[in-house]
Design a protein around this nucleic acid. Structure first.
Lengths: 299, 299
DNA sequence: ATCTCATGTTCGAAAATCCTGAAGAAACAT
DNA sequence: ATGTTTCTTCAGGATTTTCGAACATGAGAT
């Protein structure tokens, strides 16, 4: 390893301040020490970093590139330091959130924004999951916190708290035959038309499916967004979260129909596995409880 | 900057070799030097990296994370060293290729594979462009080499070499009215139907457009793939590269029609600006010439 | 239990590295 | 020219790092 972070730090200061002398001052060193460091790095790498032909030193082409990429290194190193130091005080280096696609991204944004305000170096990793996928992600350790998990936890020790409910509407495209049917539409009629289901992202746990009537022609897609697209195109019917469907209902691209034995709002939960949460997980748990109590997250 | 690459190197060796002693041997140092480095790093970061309660030292949780992320740093540092050292010997740190979407990706793959075989640390950056976009990318320095540039160079000093030709076919969906028209179809008939054009990605240079008949209803999309989709859907007509259309012609999803004053194959070029190419650019120039001479790149 | 072996630590001395401060050369501005 | 700023050189010294030997400590073998 010929490179050293310290030397890169020196290069960075020189470039920012515009001269060896100014960099020396910033780094509380003497100019000759800067010269020494630069020359050593040049020798170690076998390259010329500065062009000394003129009065003041100018970065060579190689030097420019070295500094440009070197700054990424410095930045990454500083971030790593932060995470490591914070981990020692109880903040996780990384927190992985498995978010059900029933939770609109817009409802998540304020939380992420608030978390970003904290002076903590914990990295967030979001992954969207479908239905049971959130439990599954928790189950085999791909996630630390499930947001929008369903009512049916898999076997195992999990902590679980209610998050809110998601109302659903049965919606079809205006061209769809069911659009003109008298309400409430009986189940045996619905069964005649193709339904659209969202496939479960569960890998290990047994896959679920949302209220698909037996014997019905089913088109399975992998995300709610796709399901919406399919229903908009009139290629199938099914329930959609009201929040997702609303703009299209207003738009008259979708028609809401009352159905015999309509679907109740689905209760969503947040859940985690770790019995002794780190500070980041703890923050999210508290913040979600607060949001749930304030019913902020009922869509 | 409390972190040092050297210390990370030591941690890495310890973990790989399984003990301080073995790491010392690998690094040609004495065990006490290893102890010293580790202790210093622990002190600097204010954390415990190893758990010394047992006989042999084991990484703590923090230590594990530090090492895991630290290895990315080491790797990045090593790569940067490589690039910098190679740049000094004439290899560019990065070469940016602007590739016209008329060039099928499959024709590009062998080149990229061969380049990957070279022992050079030059990073490749590919960007797909539409039509004049390749010239444009060259023009304002977003690319170093244009592959599949058109016949009409913008003003300026560029080097240009022929690459091959792309045959076009006039194709429509089977449902399209023109699909049953007697051939050759006269221009005034074609003009009655909506054409699909690919918008130019040119930003600064004047935008071009491919043979759009004046006064015709035109739907402009931004990529060839989109144009293909539109034509497949029967929403418009136009010329497509034979290589792109062929699978759908075989499939009977597209019908080729002879047209009055049919479009000649388009000549493609590769072009660059730099009068003194670095080694990577030089390699591509030679390799493309070889491919063009062997007519490998005629589609 | 005791012995043996390997591991990691401690410590003073030696070596290498790095910084300092003064002096000097070279380019630019006035 | 003259002065100023900038970087370099160099010798000395401070600091950091390494060395090698002595020392603890746990694991496994006898």
């Amino acid at each position: 390893m010929r490179l050293s972070l310290d030397a890169l730090l020196v290069l960075d200061a020189i470039e920012r301040k515009g001269s060896f002398a100014a960099a020396a001052e910033e780094l509380h060193r003497v100019p000759s020490a800067i010269t020494y460091t630069v020359q050593k790095l040049e020798q170690d790498l076998g390259i010329l970093i500065f062009d000394r032909s003129g009065h003041r030193a100018r970065l060579t082409e190689v030097g420019t590139h070295l500094l440009k990429d070197g700054r990424y290194l410095l930045d990454a190193a500083a971030q790593l330091e932060d995470r490591v130091r914070q981990q020692a005080t109880g903040w996780e280096p990384e927190l992985r959130l498995a978010v059900s696609d029933l939770v609109p991204f817009s409802a998540l944004l304020p939380l992420l924004a608030e978390f970003g305000q904290l002076t903590c170096a914990t990295r967030l990793r979001l992954q969207r999951e479908v239905l049971g996928g959130t439990w599954d992600a928790l189950h085999d350790g791909r996630a630390d916190l499930a947001i929008g998990a369903s009512d049916q936890p898999p076997p195992g020790r999990y902590q679980r708290q209610p998050l809110g409910t998601v109302p659903f509407v049965f919606a079809v495209a205006p061209e769809h035959p069911l659009a003109r049917h008298t309400e409430p539409i009986p189940l045996y009629v619905i069964r005649k038309y193709r339904a659209v289901a969202v496939g479960d992202t569960s890998r290990q746990l047994p896959a679920r499916s949302l209220s698909i009537l037996e014997g019905q022609d089913v088109l399975t897609v992998s995300t709610l967004a796709e399901k919406l697209q399919v229903q908009l195109a009139g290629l199938g019917t099914g329930y959609l979260p009201l929040s997702l469907a609303q703009p299209y209902i207003d738009n008259e691209k979708l028609v809401v129909k009352q159905v015999e034995d309509g679907k109740d709002p689905i209760a969503l939960f947040y859940a985690w596995k770790e019995p002794q949460p780190g500070k980041a997980l703890d923050w999210f748990i508290r913040r979600l409880k607060q949001a749930a109590d304030a019913a902020t997250l009922t869509y």
